[in-house]
Amino acid sequence: MAETSEVTDATFEADVMKSDLPVLVDFWAPWCGPCRMVAPIVEELGEEYAGRVNFYKMNTDENPTIPTQYGIRSIPSLLIFKSGELAGTIVGFRPKSDLKKRLEEAIA
């Protein structure tokens, strides 16, 4: 399964804010167990939405700026961006079908 690409504080503007496609960013950290368990679900979604939504993950340990800017106090958190604006936030782990529903709503 294709691993989700990394986005950083430095590349966030170009990869997320200026993206033509909607973007889902999976905020995670290596010490966060559930984040590691959510990763395969996000990867499955990434394959299902290939060409419609770009998927990235951001390591909150290595990237202090963007997580702070978006007030991330809990991970995993999935943030969905559309046309450079925050269009949806999903905190914690949710059923895959819920993630799809929230993603569809955010990119509609």
């Binding site: 010490w31 966060c32 559930p34 809990s74």
Partner: peptide
């Protein structure tokens, strides 16, 4: 306040 200080997973969120 879930996700903004209320948590059911310290191993996920304690570091914040």
């Amino acid at each position: 306040l879930v996700g903004r200080g209320v948590s059911y997973c310290a191993t996920c969120d304690a570091a914040f």
